[in-house]
Amino acid sequence: MSAEQLAEVSDQFVVAAVLLYVVAMVAFATDLAFGRVRPGRAVAKAAARQPVAVGAAAPPPGADVLPESASVPATPEPPRFAAVAGTAGLVLAWVGWVANLSAIVTRGLAVDRWPWGNMYEFVVAICFAAVSAFLITQVRHDVRFLGGFVMVTAALGLGLASKVFYTAAGPVVPALDSYWIAIHVSAAIIASGLLTLAGVTGILYLVRGDGPSRLPSRADLERVAHRAIVFAFPLWTFAVIAGALWADRAWGRYWGWDPKEVWSFITWVAYAAYLHAKATAGWKGRAATIVQLVAFGCLLFNLIGVNIFIDGLHSYADVD
């Protein structure tokens, strides 16, 4: 296949991944809406509110128009199709993951370099990393409840990438033509994927009340988010330091307070504050989750805001 054809195939894989993620999301949402209710700390009172809250975070078609009375069966026995839908969601998510991976690989073949040289490629890769983080976690722990939300996030991310950040396949400027891109950007991608998972979980934490819910208990949610961050933080640290090493090769200094550097630093400090808040200052639950989400906001701003609104040395994003 020629490079142009490969690039086109890559674009089609992205579309396929979006569609698959959306269908998977509907399946996960069905599972969540009709599946087992899990007790919270304070029993019963918030029960009727839950489906609405779920709908607010991720409006699966139909879920937000569920009549309130119908949504919470009094008996704990969920209908069979709920579990089937959950499994279908997982299968679809894996297929979408393969499509996402294929999009990245074909793009890489088309441009004959590491396929994360601009914002479009970078966001596609982060979505892939976030879905991977979810699916890999799912292999060992039951975090199916996260599925719908991760799928929405990934579908929106890929959609945003194709609609707003799209960049035709092509070579990169000489500054990016370096093996450092494999080290620095890959680390940033994996860390961002994990932190996205943590961010989604953090939002669910805030949405979920203390009552019974189809979501796992707040303590469980907090644990999932914490684990993801514990993995991501050293990676992020590494990504920033690798960036500094690259800057030392490319720009003549390892740290110069370029806007991207400033915001990676802010993000890093914010996640460090989260870890300190949890480990040493003994903040739990809501407070820690809010710190985590502020940090996640910094991460997103660094990714989107800095690339688009502020220009600096890092403006390779190629977004017009």
Binding site: G256, W257, A270, A277
Partner: peptide, 27 residues
């Protein structure tokens, strides 16, 4: 104390924000 360190961490992050929004003489 840990609380002070946390507040200082936040201040450090907050203090860097204008550094990315206002052009810097050295850059």
């Amino acid at each position: 104390s840990m609380k002070t360190a946390l507040i200082l961490l936040f201040l450090l992050a907050l203090g860097s924000v204008p550094g990315s929004l206002v052009p810097q003489r050295g850059v």
